[in-house]
């Protein structure tokens, strides 16, 4: 089966803020491959500077890459313009962290949701009014909510509106960038349940960007771990969480606070700071902090390599960008 989304060799750099004439550049993505199946959720985790949000923006067509390709359902979307771009945007919709930032505060909820229908010319005007009520119902809001303004809603309700607006155009893919990070844990659970139900009922795929590994573990079919513009490990959810291989993935999992009585922090999983993406380390981006580094790590940039022996579930090959931890090839 072909992938719904296929990202290859994506490179993005920006001029560094405040660097003036020195023209330093932020290396946001340094050659990233990723694929996502129809109806699946691909979790993208990483810390500050990992490039996960830049990758999300490239998929949404909000950021033009310096190099590489983004193929959505067989169509190259890098460089698309005009009506071709609008057609693709109808099928790839965003959900952001802060719905207050993406909803117009002067508009009622109903108008915000209808805006997506209007923009993509979905149905007749009368159909659209009915469709707004249906969408609100789909995300667990009542028809009354259509007449309220964003400030009159709780954070969880606002995120439901954000999801309803994303669903309005009938997308195949929702790119969700930290969609539950601003929510309290009890509300977060409701939104995660809602997204899972929508996926079951509508077959929509998610590219789910989050810094929270527990959330990613809960929602994803496949997971990619990013560090300073590179994917260091990618695998089926179960394989990745049961058997992380890359030293960074292992440290990241060790650092996650788990609410269990035996989860005491006995040692620091990873020392040192995350280097700046303006002047990233040579070779493997992770080598200055890596407990397993050898001399060659500072010179050679490791490629994502499939590890057959690690692949237990058989869907996505478990791939790791670290020659040190890989078993020697015969």
């Amino acid at each position: 089966m072909t992938a719904l989304l296929d990202v290859r060799g994506l490179v993005v750099t920006f001029p560094a803020p405040g660097s003036g004439l020195r023209r330093k550049r932020v290396h946001a993505l340094s050659g990233v491959d990723l694929s996502l199946r129809r109806g699946h959720t691909h979790g993208l985790v990483g810390e500050s500077g990992s490039g996960k949000s830049t990758l999300a923006r490239c998929v949404l067509g909000l950021q033009r890459p310096d190099d590489g390709s983004v193929v959505f359902d067989g169509t190259e979307i890098v460089g698309l313009r005009g009506s071709a771009l609008r057609d693709i945007r109808r099928r790839i919709q965003p959900v952001f962290q802060d719905p207050l930032g993406s909803l117009d505060p002067r508009w009622t909820v109903g108008r915000s949701v209808r805006e997506s229908l209007d923009a993509f010319g979905v149905g007749s005007p009368l159909d659209r009014e009915r469709r707004v009520r249906e969408l609100l119902d789909l995300v667990g809001l009542s028809p009354d909510h259509a007449d309220r303004h964003p400030v009159q809603l709780s954070g969880g309700q606002r995120q439901r509106v954000g999801i309803a607006a994303a669903l309005a155009s009938g997308p195949d893919l929702i790119v969700a960038d930290e969609p539950v990070s601003a929510l309290d844990v009890s509300v977060q659970a409701q939104i995660l349940n809602l997204m899972a139900r929508l996926q079951r009922d509508l077959g929509v795929a998610f590219l789910f960007v989050s810094h929270d590994l527990s959330v990613v573990e809960h929602v994803s079919n496949e997971v990619s771990v990013m560090y300073l513009g590179k994917i260091v490990e990618t695998a089926d959810r179960a394989d990745l969480f049961a058997g992380p291989v890359h030293p960074y993935t292992r440290a990241l999992l060790d650092a996650v606070p788990v609410p269990e009585p035996d989860a005491r922090l006995v040692h620091v999983p990873l020392s040192g700071d995350i280097p700046s993406p303006i002047d990233p380390p040579s070779g493997c981006r992770f080598h200055p902090r890596c407990p397993r580094r050898v001399d060659s790590c500072s010179r050679e940039l490791p490629a994502l390599t499939p590890v057959e022996a690690l692949n237990s579930t058989g869907h996505t090959p478990h791939r790791v960008a670290c020659p040190v931890v890989l078993p020697a090839r015969p």
């Binding site: 810390e47 500050s48 810094h211 590994l213 440290a251 990241l252 060790d254 650092a255 996650v256 606070p257 922090l265 040692h267 620091v268 999983p269 990873l270 020392s271 700071d273 995350i274």
Partner: peptide, 11 residues
């Protein structure tokens, strides 16, 4: 803070 840095500060 990022999670690996959080672990350092908590420690």
């Amino acid at each position: 803070l990022d999670v690996t840095i959080q672990a350092q500060i908590l420690h």
